[in-house]
């Protein structure tokens, strides 16, 4: 699976990287137990700062998606995950401002749900 970073986007590079790895998990390109490249080699291959890759890996670790084992690398962890109440709350919190804005712009519930559906559809497709 390819990873493509666009430095001109508003989204910081480390977030773009985390996003692409997460999409890889959704599409099953990355599966439980897969090892991500070392920080140094991924940074060299992309030509980005090592701190950037490091930051992205730590963010993913905080989300509980990867497990960083010192010296041997970052391993994808998706099996036997249980969605916690806290994670649901966090998703709800981060969706809220977007939904408020959509409603205020005049969208109705159906519009918002269909947008969400099409995004999910897109993500799952190659």
């Amino acid at each position: 699976m390819y990873i493509q970073i666009n430095p001109d986007l508003e989204m910081p590079i480390y977030e773009q990287l985390s996003m692409q790895i997460m999409i890889g998990v959704i599409r099953k390109d990355l599966q439980d137990g897969d090892v991500l490249p070392s920080v140094r080699s991924l940074a060299a291959d992309l030509g980005v700062n090592m701190h950037t890759v490091n930051k992205s890996y730590h963010e993913l670790e905080k989300k509980g998606l990867i497990h960083i084992i010192p010296k041997s690398g970052a391993v994808i962890r998706t099996a036997n995950r249980k969605l916690s109440e806290e994670e649901k709350n966090r998703t709800s919190d981060s969706l809220k401002p977007t939904i408020v804005e959509a409603l205020v712009l005049g969208m109705n519930e159906e519009d918002i749900l269909s947008i969400a559906k099409s995004i999910i559809q897109n993500l799952k497709e190659e």
Binding site: M1, Y2, I3, N6, D29, L36
Partner: peptide, 12 residues
């Protein structure tokens, strides 16, 4: 020209 960075996971 639009500058991007590309790699493939697992290329190593």
């Amino acid at each position: 020209l639009k500058v991007v960075s590309v790699t493939e996971l697992g290329i190593r």
